[in-house]
């Protein structure tokens, strides 16, 4: 039996490593570097109803062991993705998870209805946590009532299981998770980026043209691990963990915290071969730590936290 194999609603993952949405495009660039069939799955860049240009540049800024980005959901639109991006991905033996975003509930429904019917797509990742767009995005992801309502509507039109991508920019992520679980979510992906800002002291102005951006990278990993740990104990649905994963022990940390699979984002920019390297490094590290199957350690770090938020 494959010791890395993970089964989740709609997803048959040969290993728990998935490039995170927005950090891997639609796979075309990375397919020139290695065989994408090695991957457990691929979370493709967010789809919106129409083509979007996104924000002005600069769109990225580095900070201590982290990266701020404000791309603004640039994408060719759901029809463009179905016509030009999914056919390319169909050649790979890996599970495609389509990230869906929108400005209104109707847009989320339209995009989900269309993209979930494509046979290449195995699951939907409902993006209610993008901090870089004016309307929609995170606005749906910071109010439990709105998040639950949107989850219900999207579930009703989706052909495939729906994973809700949670924002860490909330008072209680546990409350958010429980709300979308009750609304019918099949799984959770967490965490999206934390809202941040950097200022160029030579100009006295924010570096990002959008002024604010989402912080990702190793700087946020302990926050992600803590949130996964708290949420995993409060819900029954599975979690795909993400937030600053750079090395094989980070993957194990997320699974100990309660994740069933792990997405890798910013690390792809530092080392474009990172997902491939993590997949090949996992068995050796598991041997060293005496782990037979990857999910044997899932949630093994559970316990009460004094301050639960």
């Amino acid at each position: 039996m494959n010791r890395l194999h993970v089964t989740l609603p709609g997803l048959n993952l040969k290993n728990p490593i998935i490039p995170a949405s927005g950090c891997f495009g639609f796979g075309e660039e990375f397919a020139k570097l290695y065989d994408l069939s090695l991957l457990g799955g691929i979370m493709i860049k967010a789809a919106t109803g129409e083509e979007r240009y996104g924000n002005p540049t600069p769109r990225v800024a580095e900070s201590g062991m982290g990266m701020l980005n404000a791309i603004g959901l640039q994408n060719p639109g759901v029809d463009g993705i179905i016509a030009h991006k999914l056919p390319f991905l169909s050649q790979f033996d890996t599970e495609v998870i389509a990230n869906v975003a929108g400005s209104t509930a109707e847009e989320y429904e339209t995009v989900t209805r269309r993209i979930s019917q494509d046979p290449v797509v195995k699951a939907i990742e409902l993006n209610i946590s993008c901090p870089n767009v004016k309307s929609g995005g995170m606005q749906f992801g910071t109010d439990p009532m709105m998040a639950a309502e949107l989850t219900k509507r999207v579930k009703a039109v989706s052909d495939k299981p729906v994973y809700v991508k949670l924002s860490p920019n909330v008072t209680s992520i546990v409350e958010m998770a429980q709300a979308v679980e009750q609304a019918g979510a099949d799984g959770l992906t967490m965490i999206n980026t934390l809202v941040g800002m950097r200022i160029d002291v030579r100009t006295g102005q924010p570096i990002l043209a959008n002024r604010i951006g989402g912080l990702s990278g190793p700087a946020i990993k302990p926050i992600a691990v803590r949130m996964i740990h708290d949420v995993a104990q409060a819900v029954e649905i599975p979690i795909i963990g993400m937030g600053g994963v750079m090395e094989v022990d980070d993957v194990l940390e997320m699974i100990y915290a309660g994740a069933s699979a792990v997405a890798v984002g910013t690390a792809n920019f530092v080392n474009p071969f990172i997902c491939q390297e993590l997949i090949s490094a996992l068995p050796k590290r598991m041997d060293e730590l005496g782990i037979e199957h990857i999910l044997d350690i899932r949630g093994k770090a559970y316990g009460a936290t004094l301050h639960r938020a």
């Binding site: 495009g25 240009y53 540049t57 920019f269």
Partner: peptide
């Protein structure tokens, strides 16, 4: 010149608009 992320075309950090309305 532009601030870049991945350097290989995947992250859309370094886009530049074009006269035909694309990038």
């Amino acid at each position: 010149e532009n601030r870049m992320g991945c350097g290989i075309g995947a992250c859309f950090a370094c886009v530049c608009p074009t006269p035909d309305g694309h990038y």
